[in-house]
Design a protein around this nucleic acid. Structure first.
Lengths: 113, 113
DNA sequence: CGCATTTTTGGCCATTTTGCCAATAAACCG
DNA sequence: CGGTTTATTGGCAAAATGGCCAAAAATGCG
């Protein structure tokens, strides 16, 4: 894995990394409905405002969300419709994982007895 | 964010978290072509075998890859076709990010002088 | 069986991440 | 302007992650 490959990988991994934290994923799921301001997200998650602000900063730097200021409040929204597809894809992955977990419990011949 | 929501989020975040590391993302990109064994991936990435093995373990626990043993060698492959879609989605996200970065540099009137 | 090959696991340390508090910044209101 | 609300930044301690080495499994081969 050379320097060029790493440079190509880094921003792509950053997108997944940003989504790879429960609070941040919750934010993205929430923004799927409609834009929200920091204080609303803070309320919903139940953490310190500064914590949420930093999570939003991670999401923004990765390119996952956009922000727009209106007075003193800042609204965040998803940067790309394609995020819905990504979120849905995890459902397929988890469904398949559940199936194969089941299959290995059941054994090759489906006999549970 | 209550316990139920956290339980729902955790496995989904784990999928993204697994993809959110350059080496692991490289592995997934590589497996997109065809299955590979640990030693091949080790060679391609240039890290210790144990490091790669642990990365693969993370991907496997998240449900991203499957493994099958053949003799002493273990082959890994993608668990879901939907991963291609996820990887492609990052391209859209990064493209949009590049565009908006450009727009903000250019300013509201597109005058760069 | 004894040995080689491939992979996984355990242990350790350096680095990164996370989350809180405090302080600062930005914008509105009276 | 001074005070209030909303958000961001800095700093710190605790927790998690990543990577290497060494050791242990697991499998095939002579």
């Amino acid at each position: 894995m050379n320097t060029n490959q790493e440079a190509w990988l880094a921003p792509r991994a950053a997108v997944f990394k940003a989504l790879g934290h429960p609070s941040r994923l919750f934010i993205v799921e929430t923004l799927r409905q409609k834009p929200h301001c920091v204080c609303e997200l803070t309320e919903l998650i139940g953490a310190d405002t500064s914590t949420i602000s930093k999570h939003l900063s991670v999401l923004k730097n990765a390119g996952v969300v956009h922000s727009s200021k209106s007075g003193t409040t800042v609204y965040y929204r998803l940067a790309c419709d394609c995020l819905s597809g990504m979120l849905d894809a995890t459902e397929s992955i988890l469904r398949k994982r559940a199936e194969s977990a089941n299959a290995s419990l059941t054994g090759s011949f489906g006999a549970t007895r």
